[in-house]
Amino acid sequence: MYTYKHPKPIVIKLTDELGFDLRQKAAEYITANQNRTGAERGSSEEQGFGALAEMVIRNKLGMSEINSEDHPLGYDLLLPSGIKVDVKCRGGALPFKEEYESSDGIAREAKHNFFARQMHDERLDADIYVMTHLETPSKRELPGTTRQRKWVLYICGWVSKERVSNEGVYLPRGSLTEQGRTWFTYRGQEIEYYNRNLNGLESVQDLLSIEQMDVTKDSVHKGDLNLTSVDAIRIAYDLIGRGVLSEQHLAFVQNETGINKIVKPVLHSNQYFHLLHWLKEKGALTDSEIEKARKILQEEPYSGI
């Protein structure tokens, strides 16, 4: 039976002889088996990262590193308990962090992403997901070289498919998301699920302790927000302005998230002051409102390149 642990990532460096061997095997496997069909499939690089993460986990569990040709497509590996596991991996130049710094001094919590179609495709019948992150060098095509030092796999934890389906936040194409100091829009139909809501692992071998009872228990567990704490505050601000929530609700969210700083808006503060000055020109407000805004927002003049 699995015993809950905080989801602190397991760090596995793939720069030694074994790591390079697994990187080579993953590259060869994708060359021979790349998926070129299906909506929102990963690129060849992304498929390679997923294959590598799966091989690392299988190696740590003492399993064959590559599935047999007749292995079902709906999951990646089968635990001795009969639990079907799908290994998810994203790759990037940055290491995995539980929190990412932002320019306002308030950390943004880490999240994981799923293609929404995975929740609704009956052929993809995994019971749980194991979430991983692969830190890569700038030239990240597998297998890379023996000199590259930035091939590092972070194994973050596991979660039941049903819980992701119940609690994850669906975001359609074009939705805006934030990571630390950067913003980007989603090109696919995504489900966001936050790292803090995963079940942690002290070692990869902890996966062998997961039984059907653990999956059933996790499927009905109620986790924390699948939003950054900052976005929870922003949404509360917005809904107060729309007459849905009150200042009391904002205070509750601030207390629950532990945030007592001013959260920066999505739009730049210069755009806010542009509206305020326009309202003043129209005679709709006075300098006192503008000065009040200056206590929570700051204009940013051009300072050169």
Rank of each mutant, 00 (worst) to 15 (best):
E17L: 00
E289V: 14
A27Q: 09
V152S: 03
E65T: 14
L285Q: 04
S81V: 08
S165P: 00
T257H: 05
S68M: 08
D231F: 06
G38F: 02
S219C: 03
K264V: 11
D214A: 11
G50N: 02
L227A: 02
T182C: 00
H249C: 14
P265A: 10
G283E: 09
V266H: 03
V220K: 08
E17M: 03
C156Q: 13
S288C: 08
N35H: 01
Q271N: 08
L77D: 02
S43N: 13
G180L: 04
I240F: 03
G223S: 02
H268K: 12
I233G: 01
F115D: 08
D16C: 07
P7R: 10
D70V: 10
D206H: 12
T286K: 04
L22Y: 05
P7S: 11
R58A: 10
R58H: 03
G92Y: 13
L153E: 04
Q47R: 10
F20N: 10
V87E: 02
G92L: 09
H277L: 10
Q148I: 04
A116R: 15
E17F: 00
Q24E: 15
E101F: 06
S64L: 11
L225F: 11
D104R: 11
P172M: 06
E300R: 14
G223T: 00
V159W: 03
R163Q: 11
G82T: 00
N226K: 06
S81Y: 14
A126D: 07
V130Y: 12
L176F: 11
R140W: 10
N35S: 04
E192A: 01
H71A: 13
A284M: 14
G38H: 10
E247M: 13
P265W: 07
F49K: 08
R147L: 14
